[in-house]
Amino acid sequence: MTHNSTRRWYMAALTAVLTAGTLALTAPTAPAAPAAPTAPMAAPAGTLAPDAFRAAPRITRAQVLARAKTWLTANNGRPVPYSQTKYWKDGYRQDCSGYVSMALGLAKPGPNTVALKNNGFTRRIAMKDLAPGDLVIKANSSSADYRHVVIFDGWANSARTAYKSYEQAGGAGTRWKQHSYGVNGRDGYHAYRPVNITG
Results as ranks from 00 to 15, higher is better:
R61M: 07
P28L: 11
A56M: 08
G105Y: 08
M102S: 12
T47S: 15
A156G: 06
R8M: 12
N4Q: 13
G77V: 11
H3W: 09
Y92W: 13
P34T: 09
G120W: 06
K138A: 10
A35W: 01
A103V: 03
P109Q: 06
S180N: 14
N157R: 04
D51M: 12
G133T: 07
P34I: 06
G91E: 11
G105Q: 08
N75C: 09
G173Q: 06
K177H: 00
V17E: 01
A144T: 14
T73P: 01
T38I: 14
A33G: 03
Y87Q: 11
D95P: 09
P37R: 08
G133D: 06
L25H: 08
W9I: 13
A27M: 12
T38C: 02
R8P: 00
S143Y: 11
A13G: 15
Y92T: 11
S97P: 06
G110N: 11
S141D: 15
G185A: 09
L106K: 02
A107P: 01
M11P: 00
L106E: 09
G46M: 09
V136H: 06
S165L: 00
N76H: 14
T29C: 03
Y82G: 04
V100E: 04
L25T: 13
P109D: 07
V150F: 02
Y181R: 03
R8E: 13
K69A: 14
R61T: 05
T2L: 06
T161V: 03
R93N: 07
T15Y: 01
G154W: 01
D129C: 03
H148T: 02
P50C: 08
A20N: 02
V136W: 05
A45Q: 11
A33W: 12
K128L: 01
R186L: 05
R58H: 09
A74K: 09
R58M: 11
S83F: 10
N118M: 10
S142Y: 10
T29D: 04
W88S: 12
A52G: 10
A49L: 13
W155L: 06
T2G: 15
V100H: 04
D95A: 08
R61G: 15
T26A: 13
L135I: 03
L25A: 15
P111L: 08
E167T: 00
A169P: 00
K117C: 07
D187K: 05
Q84G: 07
G170T: 14
A52W: 09
N118I: 01
V17M: 13
V80Q: 07
A159Q: 15
L130R: 05
N157F: 05
L65I: 10
Q94N: 10
V114M: 04
A49T: 14
Y87F: 15
V17N: 03
K108I: 05
A107G: 03
M127V: 05
V195W: 02
A35Q: 12
Y99V: 00
G105T: 07
T60A: 08
A68C: 04
P44L: 14
T26V: 15
D129N: 14
T29G: 11
V150P: 00
A107H: 07
Y163M: 03
T6W: 10
K117T: 01
A126S: 14
D153Q: 10
G21Y: 01
A169V: 05
Y92G: 11
K86P: 00
A144I: 11
Q94L: 12
T6H: 08
S97H: 09
T60F: 03
T22A: 15
V80H: 01
R147L: 01
A62Y: 01
S97L: 07
L116E: 13
A13N: 09
D95N: 15
I197R: 09
L25S: 13
A68H: 02
